[in-house]
Design a binder for these strands. Structure first.
Lengths: 121, 121
DNA sequence: TTGACAGGTAGGAAATTCCCTACATATTGT
DNA sequence: ACAATATGTAGGGAATTTCCTACCTGTCAA
């Protein structure tokens, strides 16, 4: 019956669905608050396109902007990500169970190679 | 420089971007493995549309199917969600910092109303 | 004031997503 | 074998997303 209510976290999940936007978040996290240009330097795309992405992030509450002269300094606002973590929580035991199964399986095997081969990408 | 490489987690984030799909995950988590019909009962949408959603979830590794006669039992596969949690990790300190700020602020106020009034937005 | 810089907005094309109605396939009961 | 059940796939339309090239606005420096 649930008509798939549009939760407020909807915007956050949608914002995270794009890798450019996730990269922006990473840049803000690792390099701190910075103007649009500095961010744009990391992408191939036209600057106005990045502006659109910033808008999506803004509307999801994931970044804030502070005007400073003719620049706008964008800053990471991580709080909405706490919602995502909360959302994940009830699933945690499921993957932990899986890990346990896997661990048990490995225990039963001869002590061979622990490393499961480098990811083929 | 980074051309926003399409990470493998891309599929997972994209899968989570839709609330119907998140609802499916919740149903599988709360009610356990079940056939498509049982899931479909919870949605207004045509069953083939749900099938498409299940396909997206399958390709993200978030569910698995087990054929049982003419039914297909879908089961939650939560492991890819661990990737999401890993992705979240480096952000955690940012929102904790925010909480601390908030806490400090509240401490400085007269012990009045703890509830900060519903956001006027 | 004028020009250059920073960055948002408008308008639109191409791709993708989401949902639908047929239809195809496999299994099961009669 | 036949009808009914369970579910996937095809084809297509509408909406949304993503990206582009102009273009507009505000700030700073000469």
């Amino acid at each position: 019956m649930a008509t798939t209510s549009a939760a407020p976290e909807d915007r956050v999940f949608a914002a995270l669905a794009n890798s450019t936007r996730r990269e922006v978040l990473r840049l803000l996290r690792e390099d701190g608050p910075q103007p649009v240009q500095a961010l744009a330097d990391h992408f191939d795309m036209a600057r106005p396109s990045l502006s659109e992405h910033l808008k999506v992030l803004r509307e999801a509450g994931l970044v804030s902007e502070e005007r400073q002269g003719r620049q706008r300094i964008y800053r990471l606002e991580a709080l909405p990500l706490a919602e995502v973590q909360d959302w994940l929580h009830p699933y945690e035991r499921f993957w932990r169970d899986r890990f346990k199964e896997l661990g048990a399986l490995l225990d039963r095997l001869p002590d061979d190679e622990a490393d499961p081969a480098p990811r083929t990408r």
